[in-house]
Design a protein around this nucleic acid. Sequence first.
DNA 1: GGATTGTGTATTTTT
DNA 2: TACACAATCC
Length: 744
Amino acid sequence: MPPFSPRPAPDPPAHLAGLNPEQLAAVTAPDGPLLVLAGAGTGKTRVLTCRLAHLLIEGRVRPGEVLAVTFTNKAAREMAERVERLIGRSVQGMWLGTFHAMGVRMLRAHAELVGLAPSFTILDTDDQLRLLKQVIQAAGLDERRWPARGLLALVQRWKDKGWTPQRVPDCELCEFAMGRGRELYAAYQERLSALNACDFGDLLLHGLELLGTHPELLERYRRRFRVILVDEYQDTNVAQYLWLRLLAGGHRNITCVGDDDQSIYSWRGAEVGNILRFEQDFPGATVIRLERNYRSTGHILGAATGLIAHNRARHAKTLRSEGEMGLPVRVAGLWDEEEEARWIGQEIECLQRHGEPLSSIAVLVRAGFQTRPFEERFIQMGLPYRVVGGPRFYERQEIRDAVAYLRLVVSPDDDLAFERIVNLPRRGIGEAALKALHAAARASGRSLVATARALVLTDDLPARTRGALARFLDQLDRWRSALAERSPRALAELVLEESGYVGMWQAERTPDAQGRLDNLKGLAEALEEFDTVGAFLEHVALVMDNAAEAGGEVVSVMTLHGAKGLEFDTVFLAGWEEGLFPSQRALDEGGQQALEEERRLAYVGITRARRRCTISFAANRRVYGQWTSALPSRFLDELPAEHVEVLHRSPRARPDWELLGEPRPDIRPAAFRTARAAARLIEGRAEILASRPPAGSRTFRVGERIFHDKFGYGRIEAIDGDKLEITFDKAGRKKVVDSFVEPA
DNA sequence: GGATTGTGTATTTTT
DNA sequence: TACACAATCC
């Protein structure tokens, strides 16, 4: 060993190792307001978790003094895990979770201050709709003209803005039921508190009311939460923003991390303005930009930044790639959605054959219904896939029913749960009986179950109904007494079995009945993890998680919204057509703002890709069963040409061939596994081989007669570049791209 | 009280 | 096209 070795620079503490200078600055920033503008793939989550860990390790704050909020349970879980790994102990005592989870926690502690009992229930969407429907009926309005759905959307929007009924400005009122919106909203709130219930919006709205009207309480929480951290700040709505501002108002130790370019939830109340205005809200705030992207290759990043540069309302950021340029973003035009699915399926098979894991591949679409052609094709091919974010476990009908049973057993006065399942399975307690019950309940001011107990002792109901109701109440009592004796799981099994609910599905002969029974079994299993049924119900209300999150060797198919926060080596962005993406709705109603949000969505999509990004559009698409033609999305024109390769429909259906390793003979395309599938594949190939020549290769004249595969014969009315306006003999006037048209 | 026909309407979605 | 819901009939 040499006698004198130069003293090595002290290693940074383990939790700070590997951070770049900007990240380090954000992590170690002093107290006070801090905004971290973190572009896509710049290590946003890492900075947030490291900062929290750093503050704890340095002893600047104790776990019990931290409030850390996220938007999803998944993000909260991830954050907890990562912080625990960094600090080497549990985050016990910390307030770490979603806005809503933190809201309930606060509200349970002070429920009586907003007129609720601490055991209040949290309603799901179904309950809300049922309640609103009742409110609309009670107001004597025509339910068809003023549907509960519309009122729900409106009330939700108002709550997102932090408005109680009194605070709704007059100008908002013309929208619903000739200005009666506020009155209906107020009636709904009254019903909620009569039921000792809250909807999701209330979890924050009540909290806001609580802190706003009880200064001593606010002071207490301000002292308690010495440090506040917020993830995805661009997604906060006004209520959440006000809540944070109240809590951070004293010490102003608030760190917000977000990216205005990834704000895609304005339709759910998110206000990009919150992040754009941070420096005004917290004067003297430190703003740190993270602009080094570690995720995507140069071409992908170039395409994404070039696209987003078309937006005006944004914090200017310049994302830089650290790595190689990689492959340009490919753009492919296909004939219709089926061909699009076929082509992408084939591309994926090719990747798979060259050793790419399917789990590193995703197909992203604008709207849920677009997953269908992909599912059909992938099933046909035998390509393993998963639609991520479809109907969520706890939103399934059978699960909600089962949960309603449990709710009713735990709290007999839960009217909404009662209504949901009194006659499910059929017990002969129909609409008429329910109506009578309702009337009596209103008169006595008691719950439906309590009213029913009284009513079965009288002659007010027909004997048959009375018997049925009495039997049901009896069962309820038995289940309730079993509550103390049995484990949550055993209780659920008892209730679902004895009520005949399981039997109802067993008797059903529809193909999905077995799936529902499996789900019920899954529910029972989920109950194992809870000590009490009550704890489980709280979990269900707050954590509408996707079950089966566990990955496998499958391709992910999901919406662009669902893909936020995820990344894949290979991404296919399908359906880039005017009217679909950007969506018609955004185009029609939202003006510039909505268009910019669609563009941000496109930006989110492209930046999900690490190495390969392919965008496709179809010339024809079935919309509500009608064939419609569409033009390529304007976003395609906005991609900088130097980062894009337009694929012409050539026989070379072999993407990225040279960049990938040698074909692995042991992985055969799935389609070759069966002879029938092979035949289909050949069919698919043949179509691509025989496809029309590339756009612009043929010239047309106005007035020329043409033929179009889907619309038949027609006459060219106008020409705009490669777009033709054609009056079809059968299908009417349409705009189509010239490559899909041939001379008659 | 329950089955059947007809009508209307369709993004994005976490909690 | 598909599905959910409401009015209608038995």
